[in-house]
Design a protein around this nucleic acid. Structure first.
Lengths: 337, 337
DNA sequence: CTGAAAGCGCTAACAA
DNA sequence: TTGTTAGCGCTTTCAG
């Protein structure tokens, strides 16, 4: 039954609780005969071990917490798939927390799970600052980060080079003949925002073009925000023919705005996003974007974190830098004119 | 510190562990003065209670398990959002399990969590049969189902009327003048498949049209399967001008196939899906589909299940039937010709 | 209002 | 190879 205990099994099988525990945990110190007897009892009683008791005693939960910004955004779900993939293999469970794009939710989840509910946390969110994360680690918590670089000995991380990525995007736009390129940032204080902004500015500088503040707006990383930010950009009265959005969600808002304003993409407005969300390839024209190896990033990080938990040490590589790739599609191609 | 215990706090505050526990659990039986003293100690030590110990002793985990077929499909993530919404409010955590469209994964997760890791399970998957679910319930497990009706006193469920929905879809297609309508099923044994098939057949019968087996194919509920099934349908040599897919994912495959075959939608092929996945409204033409109140379904069911866990009883409504709505868009509109 | 103590179900010394 | 037993850290009677 659902609430039979290890002693019940022991009694039925005429052995001690220790023996049952050994069978349960595949210890080699049990004779085949006893093992069979115990397994029979287990099946007859439909016994399942109580996880809480096991966790308390063994001081681990075999569970990882994962905090993402938004579970509806496929960027995050694909990372989750990667995490899940390796977690499953290594017999770990994962608790997925959806911060709903709110930083206070992230913090709330952090404290919710940091009480030995999980053995470690994976943060996939641009909002929490490195400082805050480091504070957690310094307090003895085990955590890892997907999607950004962090300088702390005990926090593993996987990320792509945001600056380089943004430079690549802007260079491509320059090559296509654009000279007035707008940048759609996410939250101002998010790493992904300012690193991509930095790349954008570097590319302009390298090309000898001036940086125009009126060509920058914040869009909060979501579609609605992207739409509104695009409208504000137009009010700024600085004409532009191309726009680089810090993620695909915001670029989607640009698509909608262009549709309403009867501005064909890419002939009157070139658009590029970041993330290679699934929806981008169903759009017309298909959206140019940057592919990040999301699944891989999830797998790498989770694997490393689980290692760290079990080895209780920090051997091997801590920082995983993976390559992103600019996917040039219809929304930024001059030949589409 | 991360590993200080309740006795450490008690010592520091010069009280007993019982008192600390009372403060921790907001018991009214503590004087304000003592409470302040204890809280001070808690903060000074940065103490957090050990969840495993608490779970073991209190026999609950304040956690719900949620099994979905595919976390990349927004149908499921929106239901999850609904579940999460009410769970958060009621101080429950959720463990999300992605069965990756595999029935054996569902069963695996079921046994993984049914050991008091969670207080109850929510199944959002068309694959497990009602019989199997009933067996779990009969064994004393607490569970609920989103997306289908089930006849069992202790399993709450929310669902929409699949038969009626399918009839509505086919009726609309008939009104648009179509007489040869294909049906794209999911897995043959999934409720959503056969109930929608039933509605499809009823609508044809009501209209006095023959049922043509060659117009039915299975597409496994995913895009690739939808694509392949569409190709098979064409090989069957039964001409058809409209297709009803049992979900949007498969309809997406049809879009791709039509694109490759240079068959414009809707003039040469009308297409309707089910779920109102976000991507449907970015397609050209926009895809007709059926909206189900996903968020609400999640909220309703989770709320009911938590009630059931706490009341330890089955008072009130068990079955929640919610309305779905046919969204007629470009992909099935004759006027688009 | 506060404290002492029993025990939740399990694992892992240690003993046999 | 097997059994006995001491906790893991918490909640909750029961007594004061």
């Amino acid at each position: 039954m659902i609430d039979s205990r290890i002693v019940d099994v022991a009694k039925r099988a005429n052995v001690s609780v220790a023996t049952v525990s050994r069978v349960l945990n595949d210890s080699p110190l049990v004779s085949p005969k006893t093992k069979a007897k115990v397994n029979l009892a287990i099946h007859e009683m439909n016994y399942t071990p109580n996880a809480s008791a096991k966790n308390l005693r063994s001081k681990k939960t075999m569970t990882l917490g994962v905090i993402v910004s938004d579970i509806l955004n496929s960027y995050y779900t694909e990372i989750i798939k990667g995490i899940e993939n390796i977690a499953n293999t290594l017999h770990y469970k994962i608790i997925i927390c959806d911060a709903q794009n709110q930083k206070d939710k992230e913090i709330e989840y952090m404290s919710l799970l940091m009480n030995r509910t999980v053995d470690g946390m994976i943060l996939v969110t641009p909002q929490m600052t490195n400082k805050e994360l480091e504070a957690y680690a310094d307090n003895g918590y085990t955590l890892g980060v997907v999607g950004r670089y962090i300088e702390h000995d005990s926090i593993p991380c996987t990320f792509t080079d945001n600056v380089k990525m943004a430079k690549d995007v802007v260079s491509h736009l320059l090559e296509q003949g654009h000279r007035n390129i707008a940048f759609l940032s996410g939250y101002a204080d998010a790493v992904d925002s300012y690193e991509r902004l930095e790349g954008y500015m570097k590319a302009l500088r390298d090309a000898g073009l001036p940086f125009v503040p009126g060509l920058i707006e914040n869009g909060d990383f979501n579609e609605e925000g992207g739409y509104a930010a695009f409208m504000r950009l137009r009010e700024n009265k600085h004409p532009f023919t191309a726009i680089f959005a810090a993620n695909d969600e915001m670029a989607l808002g640009v698509y909608r705005a262009c549709d309403e304003l009867m501005m064909p993409i890419p002939s009157q407005m070139a658009v590029i996003g970041v993330d290679n969300n699934r929806v981008t390839k169903y759009l017309i024209p298909k959206m140019s974007t940057v592919e990040q190896p999301k699944f891989t990033m999830g797998t790498l990080l989770a694997n490393k974190l689980i290692d760290q938990i079990n080895e209780n040490g920090l051997a091997g590589q801590r920082v995983y830098k993976v390559d992103s790739e600019l996917l040039v599609r219809g929304s930024s191609l001059h030949s589409f004119l």
